[in-house]
Design a protein around this nucleic acid. Structure first.
Lengths: 341, 341
DNA sequence: ACGCTGATAGTAAGCGCTTTCTACGACAGG
DNA sequence: CCTGTCGTAGAAAGCGCTTACTATCAGCGT
């Protein structure tokens, strides 16, 4: 149906090699010939056959991005940044939603490898069980030995795997945030963490823990959600009467849920209970009270990852690219009322 | 580097044809042979070469999705739905951000066509200028004649183009919303529309206009934003002192901006000015006051589009699939104060 | 004049897979 | 026993491109 190089060549009265050359501009072709080829190209509405080119040239113009869920702003911001960088390298980006499922993650990586993508960006990350880690390590090994770039974005590389790694300072951010809450005078604090085992959860929890150790704390409780708004809501319903004066959520989505739950219970934020989040999603400024949270340069990090996966930027060795976290002090955290003491 | 079919065949002591057959399971192979091939496959860590297969089979396992910006929830929700459906058809989804630029849109469609994707979902949509329309019509024609499915999602097909079209009832939703505002007693109303020329803007504006005609209105003013929060903010700054009692925004993002601006000006929502949005983004319930808006079944529509583009669902003729809008009455619209009369 | 060089263009050998067509036993029917 | 069938497997011809390698033809130095 579609015109092929041979059709164009015939029409222009040249060989396919010549057409290929004017298409790729990697070999001198005389001006008149080039002109003739261009005309034929236009007249036939020629469209390069990507798979054929990929087969012959042994390289594609595609990279892959693996996220938990593009409809979650945390990931969509990253996906967008990566896609953007891919586009400026003239590459397409295929985006895969794992919904946090390790098996889906493996399935998608295999599919991408099968497509011989130029590079893969792995974001998010699921429970890091040994078995999964082993499987993913093997896939990464295959990818690497096939020349496919692999970049971790916001998650650690599996042990003994040498891939560049865009690391957001979750621990530092969480520590600064909890320290801020402590500084405000809170002594009874609840932390609504993300799913256990998740590397992001772990890092944030660690930062939180360090800050707690450094401060004076009466009560500290940790419960686990799953990073969804609903899980934050549920957690807050439990926590509402526990006597804590501050609830720190593992991400903004859960913080939003926490605020909604507290409001529903008639508890004022921050007068009765302070709430903090993490990520600084766009919505953080629209909530009332505006959310005190931690900003991660997700877009920047993802772009960096995208540039590496696209081959625009070359890094060597087991490079860890640290992206700093920034505390965003707004209104949802205030000093506790001196209560019942 | 990577093992090929021939390597596997050699190792299993069979022909490549046989290996191909056990891989695809589309031809009888005896149990013992199959077993031997499977072993060889495993031992060599064989990974199918997608481009080669695509070339030989003249079909890929990929669809494309074109959006304005995946980091905008309006689009990320759609992208996610489409991707999900693609995945359940074992296809990958490449996602392209046009940032609303017609030329980028054309560029991406060409790139997708070059990749010989199975189908393309076009969402969003930019200014629909004749020239662009013509170009896009041509590309769609090429796609169609190459057997690539094309589906419009939330935007009209160009004139004389026969493609299935998932249509959200923007006009009906806008009409219901404005009617609701009028019912509450507002007579001086401002509408912050999306970018002029955009088909979604036009439809919503039309619905708004019809409702206005049906009601009693003293003042009505329309200004244009660009669907971004910032543009809503700016518009509201202008409108704050205009004496309107209600501001209807063309989407939730702008409504959020409007609310923020009004708050900054010390104007209470909804006591002083009511605000309404459109889309029912997740954040709509977290704002204070909760946003009265219109819900569009974006996810459902996008999934439908994804299924069509994947070839799972077959529609024939110039089918228009209407997706209903639903008015979400919350707290940001209230009766106007009887003022200064 | 003659071989050389440099600039262009053509030839053809793949890239790794799918698939049609053919080949080969084994087995049953006449 | 011969032939027609059925069930498997192999041979080989592409799919549409890229890219050595080769060929051609000016122009040039000697």
């Amino acid at each position: 149906m579609a015109a092929t190089l041979a059709d164009v060549a015939a029409r222009a009265g040249v060989s396919t090699a010549t057409v290929s050359r004017v298409l790729n501009g990697n070999y001198p072709v005389s001006a008149v010939t080039r002109e003739r080829v261009h005309r034929a190209l236009g007249e036939l509405d020629y469209v390069v056959n990507g798979p054929a080119r990929a087969l012959a040239a042994a390289t594609t113009e595609v990279i892959g991005v693996i996220v938990n869920d593009v409809s979650d702003p945390f990931f969509s911001i990253q996906a967008s940044g990566t896609q953007w960088e891919a586009a400026s390298a003239d590459l397409l980006a295929v985006i895969c939603n794992t919904a946090g499922s390790p098996s889906d993650e493996l399935k998608y990586i295999s599919m991408l490898l099968r497509q011989r993508v130029r590079g893969v960006v792995l974001t998010g990350g699921s429970r890091e069980e040994p078995e999964h880690l082993r499987a993913i390590t093997k896939l990464i090994g295959q990818a690497l030995s096939a020349g496919t770039k692999v970049v971790m974005c916001g998650r650690p590389a599996p042990p003994d795997v040498d891939v560049p790694c865009v690391a957001f300072d979750n621990e530092g951010g969480a520590r600064a945030l909890t320290r801020h809450v402590l500084t405000m005078g809170h002594k009874r604090i609840a932390y609504v963490a993300g799913p256990a085992g998740n590397s992001t959860t772990t890092a944030r929890l660690a930062g939180h823990g360090k800050a707690l150790e450094e401060g004076e704390v009466e009560t500290s409780v940790v419960v686990h959600g799953d990073f969804s708004r609903a899980s934050g809501f549920d957690a807050a319903m439990e926590l509402a009467d526990s006597g804590v004066t501050a609830i720190i959520a593992g991400n903004d989505l859960m913080a939003l849920g926490v605020i909604a739950a507290l409001r529903q219970r008639g508890i004022r934020v921050p007068q009765d209970i302070s709430v903090a989040g993490f990520d600084d999603l766009p919505a953080a400024v629209d909530v009332v009270p505006a959310l005190t949270t931690v900003r991660l340069p997700l877009d920047q990090g993802a772009r960096r990852a995208g540039r590496i996966a696209s081959g625009v930027e070359v890094v060597t060795g087991p490079t860890k690219l640290w992206m700093p976290a920034e505390l965003m002090v707004r209104e949802s955290v205030a000093p506790p009322r001196r209560q019942t003491q």
